[in-house]
Design a protein around this nucleic acid. Structure first.
Lengths: 346, 346
DNA sequence: GTGAAAGCGCTAACAC
DNA sequence: GTGTTAGCGCTTTCAC
């Protein structure tokens, strides 16, 4: 029996309303009771400012109404838009969102999956930087439903949503060729990742399908980042002045490339067309605004959230694996419309 | 007594190790036991892959090891850098982070504070868009420690960290004057907020201290956003062609202003110097890179987290209120170093 | 050092 | 309808 101190509990309310704790629980959960009982309980609860203890509730019910989202980097706009969509799906359903930034450390990712066993979260959306055997092993034993945003081996018994960076890259390179570009350089991010490899495949595919031969000299692999992009572009332009366009593995790299072009007095897009990837706010921020491939971060986030929710209150339906189609946002860095230099020159 | 199904509990371990659940708990929490007991419990736990139920633990201990961060918009880089710093402080201490995007809806903010009563989170860092009387009232009754990032009335009994947008604006405007600018326009964000008013104060203060008279004609109030910034800049430049510089209330507005300048063939910074605020990644993304005032989002996040943690495991020390000093990041949009146009012209 | 037992606050059988 | 009671899984007295 709670004494004067401490927050009110079902017992406090029961005492005040002159009923049993069971009635309090029933009324508060809308399980029907005599009108008089309802009134008295509700009044007592209101007067005391009662709020049910969520932890106790979770212990009893086995569900916490909490979901976890683990991604490599909170700062990355692509993941931010996933967060936003996940929130949009789950918040109306009454879920809270736990955020976990793994800093792209694989062991951290594994720990997140393992810690599902502490029953603190009802489910997990995991966005791994790279999927290893250890991942597959841990995922197979996960204590709660998991949805992976990324590419899993076909054998995996885990729901997943993947981007299609091959097609995305093809879109970009094809667009550059349609703009009349022939010497198309490629600034790729880390190549030892699935997306890194896929972009390379896409780049070569698009060129070949147009009857062109990919020139390894025009491909640079580097870390993500504006500075890295600028350095890579300078290197390419030093070695191959004939380059008329560059496709970059993300918007930061593309902005860096644009900076390099400006530094060398190259007009965008007349002398160098630039295409980025992710279609983040940065693409719009650049001058001229960057044409960019949207790999559907937002949509992947939304779908992952929907899959997880379905798994949570749904039954044991089969494993799902969806692929989100890329989309090209065409802006001035390839078409030249509305840019200052274009206006000044033409 | 747990049957074969369900995850292992203290009872499962106890049975397997041939000891009581109390001993299991002691060993698992390092409370000392006979070496033999320790060995057997640890072995049993390892074999069964036991992970303690965090919810049960929380119910008993009254602490969830969860913290909540509520801010207006997950997408805003300023808040993202707060998230990052808060993580950096609290994660090593074993806290999980619950994220809450209020979309700048005051009622949502109030709900977050109220819901602390459900004991689901040990503490809250709240970043309100605007502090109302209702906020103060709810904050005063908060069931858990709260730290506010923002300006609170002096009477508030709540820890807080505030930015100094007055000084920040003064820094920016003073810098422009030191660069020889005299017709300094001001594109402000929503003026009915504390930061909005403070920026106006700072703008007028800096001009007056230099013996100049603020011209209301050179001040535009608008929503945040790149488009809004471009429109505002065009309007200003149409009406007052003599403007030689513009200070903007955030980086988005500044980027918009830069786009407008480019559209009108105005060279930055020769013909129009531009200063932004927040020093987000966008500032670096612009071309030329934007000079921007850093209001210390990251530092505010860090300090808020430290305050909350101190309040959590510390005693009842007095209410703290810290102010973070702004810092100016000078880049090409005011100095002209390294920009293409500068190089081309000089 | 160890075990039995109480209890954190809640929900849900189960009797009445 | 309503009250009594039994747990959810854990930590922590309290005896031994």
């Amino acid at each position: 029996m709670p004494t004067s101190d401490g927050p009110p509990t079902v017992e406090t309310i029961a005492a005040r309303a002159g009923v049993s704790i069971a009635s309090v629980s029933r009324v508060l959960n809308g399980h029907g009771a005599r009108p008089n009982t309802v009134r008295r309980v509700e009044q007592a609860a209101a007067e005391l400012g009662y709020v049910p203890n969520g932890v106790a509730r979770s212990l009893k019910g086995g569900r916490t109404r909490q979901l976890t989202f683990a991604m490599p980097d909170v700062g990355n706009p692509a993941y931010v838009s996933m967060v936003r969509q996940i929130q949009a799906v789950t918040k109306p359903l009454g879920y809270r969102l736990l955020l976990h930034s793994t800093d792209a450390v694989a062991e951290d990712e594994l720990d997140v999956v393992r810690s599902l066993a502490d029953r603190t979260s009802d489910g997990l959306i995991l966005c791994p930087i790279r999927v290893t055997d250890a991942h597959m092993e841990v995922l197979a034993r996960a204590a709660r439903p998991v949805v992976v945003i990324g590419s899993l081996p076909g054998t995996a018994a885990v729901d997943s949503v993947r981007a299609d960076s091959v097609s995305g890259t093809v879109l970009a390179v094809r667009h550059l060729m349609e703009c009349g570009r022939r010497r198309i350089a490629f600034i790729n991010g880390p190549a030892d990742t699935v997306p890194g490899r896929n972009r390379l495949i896409g780049y070569e595919t698009a060129l070949r399908e147009a009857g062109a031969v990919p020139d390894p000299e025009l491909i640079v692999t580097t870390d993500f980042g504006i500075e890295a992009g600028a350095r890579a572009a300078h290197r390419l332009l030093d070695a191959h002045p004939g380059i008329d366009s560059v496709f970059c593995a993300n918007d930061q790299l593309a902005l860096g490339a644009a900076h390099a072009a400006h530094d060398r007095d190259l007009r965008i897009p007349e002398e160098l067309a630039v295409v980025g990837m992710d279609d983040s706010e940065l693409a719009r921020a650049g001058h001229p605004a960057l044409t960019s491939v949207d790999l559907g971060s937002a949509e992947r986030g939304r779908i992952a959230a929907e899959m997880l929710v379905a798994r949570l209150d749904g039954g044991r339906h089969e494993v799902r694996c969806e692929t989100v189609a890329p989309r090209l946002s065409v802006r001035e860095s390839t078409t030249g419309a509305r840019t200052r230099t274009a206006a000044g020159v033409s």
